[in-house]
């Protein structure tokens, strides 16, 4: 097992390397007018040339990349020109908030999705199945940011139950209970799409498993239908749902961009939206790289969990 994890960690290296190249190229290939953006009205040709020289933008691309990746490996992601602050410090501050939001949403989505999928499969073509199928369809057809606005209107404006925005109360907030209260609406909104996708896949995974020979064996042994479904079938179905949860982690991390904007959650997504409109390239680069790397890492975790659950892959 340790050897397997070590091997997988090693295999991450080229992927991360590739990621860094893509991130760098996307930002660098387009003739960005970073200098013009910084200088604004002062963008005389001489000033632009000086800024370009200061930032190393006049060097060949390969050299620029090597300098950048060398610095990144030493933890230096550069300095945000708009915030006048090291990119790494800003990104790590923000990333914690995103992890809380996205992590909660993913756990919620997995629980709700699995449960809904199982109920749907067990009650196939029954009323529960139809209702769940419809809710799932509606959930994945709805813009999540719009749902967020609706929830704010209902829970914060109409019923005054939950805070509408932010991560902590402005006065006297900050404790875990306060964060939890602020977390409910955004996490629920963010989990919706992933829960829908997971529900769909759990349903079909369960239905597929229920057709297999070993389920007939379980029945032939005289096991109760409950044991057959919630023991044997579920155990086999979960193995194929785990990688889907891994993929959904990416959608949740990406979807956080909208939800953080709607709920003014101080996460990395909201930061990047702002950085894009101010063309703070280094900040966008750092943010994308960190989120993508954490996604790759999370998929590794999902793979390891799947391996633990399925003895056939383990050996």
């Amino acid at each position: 097992m340790t050897a397997y994890i070590a091997k997988r960690l090693l295999a991450m290296v080229p992927v991360l390397f590739g990621l860094s190249i893509i991130v760098f190229l996307v930002m660098a290939l387009i003739p960005g007018d970073t200098a013009t953006a910084i200088l604004g009205a002062y963008a005389t040709p001489e000033n632009v040339a000086r800024i370009n020289r200061d930032l190393g933008l006049d060097k060949p691309l390969v050299q620029q990349y090597l300098i950048w990746i060398g610095n990144v490996l030493q933890g230096d992601f550069g300095r945000s020109v708009t915030l006048n602050r090291p990119v790494l410090a800003e990104v790590t501050d923000r990333f914690g908030a995103t992890l809380i939001l996205a992590g909660t949403a993913l756990v919620l989505a997995s629980l709700i999705g699995l449960l809904a999928g199982i109920v749907s499969a067990v009650r196939q073509f029954g009323w529960a199945d139809r209702i769940i199928t419809f809710i799932v369809l509606a959930g994945i057809s709805m813009p999540s940011f719009w749902l967020g606005l609706l929830l704010i209107l209902l829970f914060a404006v109409e019923w005054r139950l939950l805070p509408a925005s932010g991560m902590t109360a402005v006065y006297g907030g900050g404790g875990p209970a306060d964060v939890a209260r602020h977390l409910i609406l955004p996490a629920a909104t963010l989990s919706m799409v992933a829960a829908g996708v997971i529900a769909r896949l759990s349903r079909s995974a369960m239905l597929e498993v229920l057709r297999q020979d070993f389920i007939r064996t379980a029945r032939a042994k005289g096991l109760s239908e409950r044991r057959v479904i919630y023991g044997h079938a579920l155990r086999a179905a979960i193995v194929s749902v785990i990688p889907v949860i891994g993929i959904q982690a990416g959608f949740v991390l990406g979807g956080a961009v909208y939800i953080e904007t709607v709920f003014q959650w101080p996460g990395i997504g909201a930061m990047m939206v702002k950085a894009i409109s101010t063309r703070d390239i280094l900040l966008v680069q750092g943010g994308v790289l960190v989120v993508a790397a954490s996604y790759v890492l999370f998929n590794l975790v999902a793979d390891v969990v799947q391996t633990l659950l399925d003895p056939r892959i383990r050996t």
Binding site: V15, L19, I22, L253, A292
Partner: peptide, 18 residues
């Protein structure tokens, strides 16, 4: 695979950023 290693919307954001 490399493109898919990005969280979906994030890559779109990076492209729009560029």
């Amino acid at each position: 695979d490399m493109l898919m290693a990005f969280p979906y919307i994030l890559l779109a954001l990076a492209i729009v950023a560029a």
